[in-house]
């Protein structure tokens, strides 16, 4: 069995008296697409927040590539190879698409403020390289022609995709997508499923939160189901759809479980 890329071990997250995650354990294996589903309030976004260091876990261990993430600064977690998108779009609206992605690619620059100020060759070189890389990522996600537009003026669907391109800008090993299809029409969803697969095929690992069952079942290699902060299932999509506990949690059969 391959070494997991990310491992949550008995992770519990409490806010005062509320237990948002209760003893959750699961692995993310390299180069897989892992779907993370559950009814509203099940704790999916909390999982993202504890992985990315927004919250420190109350107990349990999160390890990435074998090392614990406990106490690590958020930007260092990102630098070590985890990047995320946001459920409610949080782009830097007054920057262009390209600048949004370039701010992310800056994560791995060696040159900092002073080498930029004095126009050192390394700064100029990295700037050029990252500009090309950022444009490449925009093209890869299919929004290359919007590179000069301010993020706040972009159509909704493009903003959602830009969130993904920006996260990829940090050159993550693990990409966390928080409801990337929210508000998409069926055609856009099909396109997104294709994009997510292409991202995986390009060598990234994807952890996907999504409410659209047909999308999750179609793209995921494996699905983890949370309900009231607890993991109730962890299996391949076909099995998940037949799991009585999952069906119960959702109070019914997913739309296209046939």
């Amino acid at each position: 069995m391959t070494e997991p890329l990310l491992r949550l071990e008995n992770v519990t997250m409490q806010f005062g008296g509320v237990t948002a995650l209760n003893n959750v354990t699961f692995d993310v294996k390299p180069q897989e697409i892992l779907g993370l589903i559950g009814p509203n309030g099940a704790g999916k976004t909390t999982v993202f927040n504890v992985i990315t260091g927004v919250y420190q876990v109350s107990s349990g261990v999160i390890s990435f590539q074998g090392g614990s993430l406990a106490g690590k600064k958020r930007y260092k977690i990102t630098k070590s190879g985890i990047a995320r998108t946001f459920q409610n779009i949080r782009l830097w609206g007054d920057m262009t698409s390209l600048e949004n992605v370039m701010t992310a690619t800056d994560t791995h620059k060696k040159s900092g403020l002073l080498s930029g100020l004095f126009g050192m060759p390394i700064s100029r070189r990295e700037e050029k390289r990252d500009k090309a890389r950022a444009q490449e990522l925009l093209d890869f996600i299919g929004i290359g022609e919007y590179s000069d537009r301010l993020a706040k003026n972009l159509p909704y669907g493009v903003q959602r995709r830009l969130e993904i391109a920006r996260a990829l800008g940090t050159e993550p090993k693990l990409l966390l997508l928080d409801e990337p299809a929210a508000g998409f029409n069926p055609a856009e969803k099909v396109e997104l499923a294709d994009t997510i697969r292409r991202i995986r095929d390009a060598g990234y690992t994807v952890l996907l939160i999504e409410h659209d069952m047909s999308l999750v079942m179609k793209v995921s290699d494996r699905v983890v189901v949370l309900d009231f902060g607890q993991k109730i299932a962890d299996d391949v999509p076909q099995k998940i759809q037949e799991d009585p506990r999952v069906i119960e949690a959702y109070l019914g059969v997913p739309e296209n479980a046939s």
Binding site: R74, R84, E99, M102, T103, D106
Partner: peptide
């Protein structure tokens, strides 16, 4: 870019690798 991202949304900046 780092300053601009901080001004607009500091939490997001940090989560996208800006020190």
């Amino acid at each position: 870019r780092a300053w601009e991202s901080i001004r607009q949304d500091e939490d997001v900046a940090e989560l996208l690798g800006v020190p």
